[in-house]
């Protein structure tokens, strides 16, 4: 079987369009999802049983159902209320909704992990609650939530492939279209795969640089005796 790059050359505009739409949708879904996630997290931290229950249910339900079903429910359910929205918009909203449940958990955990004393010592020297949030609580919570948020964002970008099933012309959909025209699955999926891989590597790289700038503690390699290391370490320790 011959690998025929000519196919890719002929169809690369479609791949590019698809990739670009994937990126756009991911960015918009991220913004929507994180805003919603912060709101739900704050709701869950309010006093009283009702807000906490509401927030917890939101998170549990959205995390238990496969994204493809969430997507279909919204896409096929919307016409019921008379609303006919374009697929890319529906897809973006669904993706954002899905991600918001995970972001909410991440933000909530980040806030709860901060010792109350941090806020108190800021107030005790006379800072207003807003000043305490801005100078002391906010920066520390931000540091805590960046790594898990990065993880979730990468997951969300990959999950965007599912939007192809409601005909959103993102990268996967374009791949299926080209594959349908050319019957060259190897070349097509090789290209699509590499593009996704490239996108996630780029995002992960940018996130690590952000983490370093914020001063997020980098995991330090633990030195251990060589016998135990021969079992427990899965890579050779490189001299740093």
């Amino acid at each position: 079987m011959a690998f025929d790059p000519a196919i890719l050359v002929q169809y690369w505009p479609l791949f590019l369009q698809g990739a670009w739409l994937t990126i756009q949708i991911s960015v918009q879904a991220f913004l929507l999802g994180y805003t919603l996630g912060i709101a739900v997290a704050l709701l869950g931290l309010m006093p009283g049983r009702l807000p906490r229950l509401a927030a917890a249910s939101y998170v549990e339900v959205l995390r238990a159902i496969p994204f493809i079903i969430i997507l279909f429910v919204i896409y096929y359910g919307l016409p019921f209320s008379g609303l006919r929205l374009p697929a890319p918009l529906v897809g973006t909203v669904a993706l954002g909704l899905f991600a918001s449940a995970y972001y909410a958990e991440i933000v909530r955990a980040g806030i709860l992990a901060l010792p109350r004393g941090q806020f108190e010592s800021a107030r005790a020297i006379g800072m207003s609650p807003l000043q305490a949030m801005r100078h002391i609580v906010g920066p520390q919570v931000a540091r805590a939530i960046v790594p898990p948020s990065t993880n979730m964002t990468l997951t969300m970008i990959k999950e965007s492939a599912v939007l192809s099933s409601i005909t959103v012309p993102e990268l996967t959909y374009q791949g299926l279209v080209v594959q349908g025209n050319t019957f060259a699955p190897f070349e097509v999926f090789a290209a699509v795969t590499l593009i996704y891989w490239g996108i996630t590597l780029a995002v992960a790289g940018a996130a690590h640089r952000l983490e370093r700038r914020l001063g997020v503690a980098q995991a330090r390699s633990v030195s251990r005796n060589r016998l135990a290391a021969s079992y427990l370490l899965l890579e050779r320790e490189s001299a740093r």
Binding site: S121, A122, G126, I136
Partner: peptide, 24 residues
């Protein structure tokens, strides 16, 4: 009011038992 209280707070220093230094 909260403002009045915050205005006087600097005058009363408190060194906490666990210090509560700001790690960042």
């Amino acid at each position: 009011t909260r403002r009045e209280i915050d205005a006087l707070r600097p005058k009363i220093g408190l060194v906490f038992q666990n210090l509560n230094l700001w790690p960042h």
